[in-house]
Design a protein around this nucleic acid. Structure first.
Lengths: 124, 124
DNA sequence: CGTACATCCGTACTATTACACGGATATCAT
DNA sequence: ATGATATCCGTGTAATAGTACGGATGTACG
């Protein structure tokens, strides 16, 4: 059996401590889903863009990010499906906003902090 | 030209505001890389597990998560490459810990908060 | 000194995902 | 009504990433 894990835990005490702080696979799956959604250049940039304004239509968002309408529409669709943004159709223009349930300050703060972690040299 | 974006912005004022808060594609790429790394059930669970203890070896971590040694080893390798965890070899056992530069309280707090956002029904 | 064990690493397979394209829908202007 | 515009949606394709397998490496123990 080359692939069998330990028969005996090396450090039982710490193992138990770890077991306590680990989240369930189920929770981890949901968390991964959410994070994976934000873990996309276009989608995260959309969230940042929307955090600065009350609302904006698809075409303008595409202009702000300098991506195609389609890319913006596609990304917004996913964010919408996940409930992170809401949309409102006025005439033939569709306006998007961050969802009310969106943890604005938390995410804004955390993401920007993570950004500085991810940036090795150019800190401001 | 069916795929041409707006020639004229719909809301110029808000567009400018959005342009200001959007991050660069480059930054977004780095951020996405980091988030994407955490956006995996095994990897996020490993981080949670390690946040509860000073260190733990691969086999014990695999036991704690109930995954194969290989899966744990692979996930730890990626976290290590990204600099999120550090390892120390003692004899034939390899112990992993969260990196010193790891934003413990921030991430722990944010992730758990995000978890409750991701959980639709069972809040505790 | 040789056997057993913990872990790593390269390779191959499979699944997931992003993106672009074309057409569809609905709305406004003429 | 007819044409043009803003956006959505389904489909296909190409890139990407996760998982499993086999072997390699180094260490402890008898």
């Amino acid at each position: 059996m080359p692939e069998v894990p330990h028969d005996h835990p090396v450090d039982l005490e710490r193992l138990e401590a770890a077991r306590q702080s680990v989240i369930t696979s189920d929770d981890a799956g949901r968390l991964a889903g959410l994070l994976g959604l934000i873990a996309d250049p276009v989608r995260s940039r959309l969230l940042f863009a929307l955090s600065g304004v009350e609302r904006l239509c698809v075409g303008d968002l595409a202009l702000a990010l300098e991506v195609t309408d389609d890319a913006a529409s596609y990304a917004l669709r996913m964010l919408r499906t996940a409930g992170l943004v809401t949309f409102r159709k006025e005439g033939r223009v569709v306006y998007y906003s961050l969802a009310a349930s969106f943890p604005h300050p938390l995410l804004e703060h955390c993401l920007r902090q993570l950004l500085s972690v991810a940036a090795p040299e150019d800190d401001r």
